[in-house]
């Protein structure tokens, strides 16, 4: 299968990219890893008139820790995150389970975030860890918003015309912390049937000071289980507590029956994986 025709601009700087994007109008798209966009173009589900290739912009390729945050630039590949010692908790746990090894060599974390596919893994991880995204505008402006404000709906983000994501910032906890990403997939390369990201931080007394739970593939968008998170905070971890949080998370999910399985079963998997994910996060936090 073959994509329909388009123009392509190779941008050498963020300014060039946002200018081209702005000029290209609403049918212009950023081309980063292309591992979601190109298949959609080949299947003729997407028909951009202009692609702005950002792969040659050197400053977007950095993965680093700065100011207590993990900064993932817009062309950092999934494989770079998976291989990096800087990744931690749910971020490190999720990276090897994104797509397959070859797609991870090319696809980018930030591209996946911008794509807002409810079956994408990264937005759950960012929702659980309280990440922010960095946005550049055509006028040279830069702004930063929490991930919750980027995700508008399925395949819809809040970026304005001429805007692009330049990086994702994930806060690095200063105390004891742990995270997990449990993904039920039918085979390597499959989207999640159910994905659960968990993140826990403990205070000096071993109580939960911060908690994050977010879900992949079981709602119209990646879903942050806020009610479950709030019952965890301030409490001492226990099997009963995690079971309660898992139940609340399962209640919050909105799974649909499809080729991957029934809604009832998926809700059950959310519950089981949330409990297991919290146990893993706790065990990691206690040994950190």
């Amino acid at each position: 299968m073959y994509p329909s025709s388009f123009d392509l601009t190779v941008a050498r700087s963020v300014a060039e990219a946002t200018a081209a994007l702005s000029e290209g109008g609403e049918d212009a798209r950023i081309l980063a890893g292309g591992q979601s966009l190109i298949p959609m173009m080949k299947l003729r589900f997407a028909f951009p008139s202009l692609l702005v290739d950002i792969n040659e912009i050197a400053e977007l390729a950095s993965l680093e820790r700065q100011n207590g945050e993990l900064r993932v630039g817009a062309t950092v590949r999934h494989a770079d995150v998976a291989a990096s010692d800087l990744a931690f908790g749910a971020v490190a746990a999720a990276a090897p389970w994104v797509a397959d090894p070859l797609v991870r060599n090319r696809g980018t974390l930030v591209g996946s975030v911008a794509h807002c596919d409810p079956e994408g893994d990264w937005n759950s991880v960012l929702l659980a860890t309280g990440a922010t995204v960095q946005i550049a505008g055509a006028d040279g402006s830069e702004r930063s918003i929490p991930i919750t404000e980027l995700i508008v709906g399925p395949f819809t983000n809040s970026l304005g015309e001429g805007e692009m994501l330049t990086a994702v910032h994930v806060p690095v906890p200063s105390g004891a912390s742990g995270g997990a990403y449990l993904k039920l997939e039918r085979k390597v390369g499959d989207y999640a049937t159910v994905g659960v990201a968990t993140h826990l931080e403990l205070d000096e007394d071993g109580r939960i000071s911060s908690a994050g739970i977010a879900l992949t593939s079981v709602a119209p968008s990646n879903l942050k289980a806020t009610e479950a998170e709030s019952v965890l905070i301030g409490e001492s971890p226990s099997g009963e507590l995690f079971a309660e949080a898992a139940s609340l998370t399962a209640d919050a999910a909105e799974p649909r029956s499809d080729i991957r399985g029934t809604a009832e079963w998926k809700r059950n998997v959310v519950r089981v994986y949330t409990r297991r994910g919290l146990e893993q996060a706790l065990s990691q936090a206690r040994s950190s």
Binding site: R186, K187, V188, D190
Partner: peptide, 13 residues
């Protein structure tokens, strides 16, 4: 209708 829905196992599974 494609290899995302028609599943062929990889070496991993």
């Amino acid at each position: 209708s494609n290899f995302m829905d028609y599943l062929v196992p990889t070496a991993w599974e």
